[in-house]
Design a protein around this nucleic acid. Sequence first.
DNA 1: TGCAAGAGGTTGTCTATACAGGTTATTTCA
DNA 2: TGAAATAACCTGTATAGACAACCTCTTGCA
Lengths: 269, 269
Amino acid sequence: MATIAKGRGNYDMTSSTKPRYQQLKEQIISRISSGDLRPLDRVPSEHELVGSTGVSRMTANRALRELTDEGYVERVAGVGTFVADLKAASDLLEVRNIADEIHMRGHEHRAAVIDLEARRVAPDVADLLHVSARSRVNHVFLVHFENDVPIQVEDRYVTIEFAKDFLAQDFQSVTPSAYLSMISPLQEAEHVVRAKVPGSRISRLLTMKANEPCLVVTRRTWVNARPVSFARLFHPGNRFELAGRYRPPGFARSHPQDSKLVELRNFDR
Amino acid sequence: MATIAKGRGNYDMTSSTKPRYQQLKEQIISRISSGDLRPLDRVPSEHELVGSTGVSRMTANRALRELTDEGYVERVAGVGTFVADLKAASDLLEVRNIADEIHMRGHEHRAAVIDLEARRVAPDVADLLHVSARSRVNHVFLVHFENDVPIQVEDRYVTIEFAKDFLAQDFQSVTPSAYLSMISPLQEAEHVVRAKVPGSRISRLLTMKANEPCLVVTRRTWVNARPVSFARLFHPGNRFELAGRYRPPGFARSHPQDSKLVELRNFDR
DNA sequence: TGCAAGAGGTTGTCTATACAGGTTATTTCA
DNA sequence: TGAAATAACCTGTATAGACAACCTCTTGCA
């Protein structure tokens, strides 16, 4: 009698088969992905979730705690839960924004846009972005400078439906990567690193000597299971390296986001 | 009165300031690191932990659940909790073992050991391994072949105290990386990727043309906060690439370990 | 002998409650 | 008016108890 009076004390009752903390997590993630909850916005407190969804506080706590571990939100004891800043979230996905890298070294970043238009692309690029071979795609081609020394050539394609106002951006001041993160948090990424001697155009833009190799990073990013951007990033091999660090979680939690960090480093000047 | 009778119902009682689930986790991790618990060994069940440590089952559950998320253990409902296979655990840390990569492609792997000895090393290497400049370090220098084509030159240094029987290993059949994982799960890793034209010795061993670039991966790994191994891996730039994929956790848990995977790929033959 | 039923252990989830400790805004008092 | 106490939040942790689902081994029956 007491068990029945409690309504649903057991767990597989609410129609779905998924656990309730998981439903809660997905509900909050979808509010973040849709833009309903924006970075630094306040997320409902555990107590509010108890009131609005009927779960117990421990269940709400588990949902929010796991979202914290996964980088979606940040929690401050005594204050509340907030959507994580995109910069922090995207560090996990993107090679760190090159402008930030440069500023972190105390140097000046500058970008020169060489091309910015919507155009039909080569079949292989169209295929990578899952668009038909004849449709248009946003394209930007630019050079990044660190203290007036060229350090990266960026050749990027972005689907039009994902970034409708792409061509109106000023990529001298905001890098394409930062702009994409601003539109929506990226959900999946694939990157490939190669060593390659670049063609003469790239070589000239990076003021490289003949036969000098490039570190080429090719990256594709997804939002909602659809590829939205494809980029080729060329770096002079004698001036740059790609560094990564990994610390398994749960051992020393002192640097919460320090693990799994990937960054570009200038090791020569 | 009831509160006192319960002994310690509150949480910051047991001398240490760390939460009890965290203490439990570290205790189990240290049993794994020390070799007391070996891969596939059974880990005490939640009930047993309740009995032996006095925590509640929910606390034991949280400890084991987080260890699962972090890749230390695997749990099977109705059966028990087991120390994760080292192969799975080290995928997070190490670039996937090159022999496994090759076998996964259905090709044959072979290694030719060129040098294997304990020797005094250059000051920079000694510094990286935190050993004094005059002490000896294990060293192995070998070439990995895929179907008799050389694809990686491995130049590795391992501290003697970590691997006392290093020189007795047969690195033709077990790669140094696999051997190190066998001794103890690695706890921290740092790697740097560069594009570089190799010296003539490396170039010759990899049967590369002049001026052809290498993808050079430099990796350092830690156990118990001490560096134990430092390796330089050279790959012919025209035959190899480093690929990574990242999917944020909690979204689609269908492929539990599929995120954060890094592998070497042969893209040419 | 062979198969079904059951017992007992294990993980997975959920609830209700409690206390500790942090932050912020309000209120009270000198 | 100014500063200290207080109230009202918040997160973090821990407990005890419950039900569900799963697995394995044993037991009992046909």
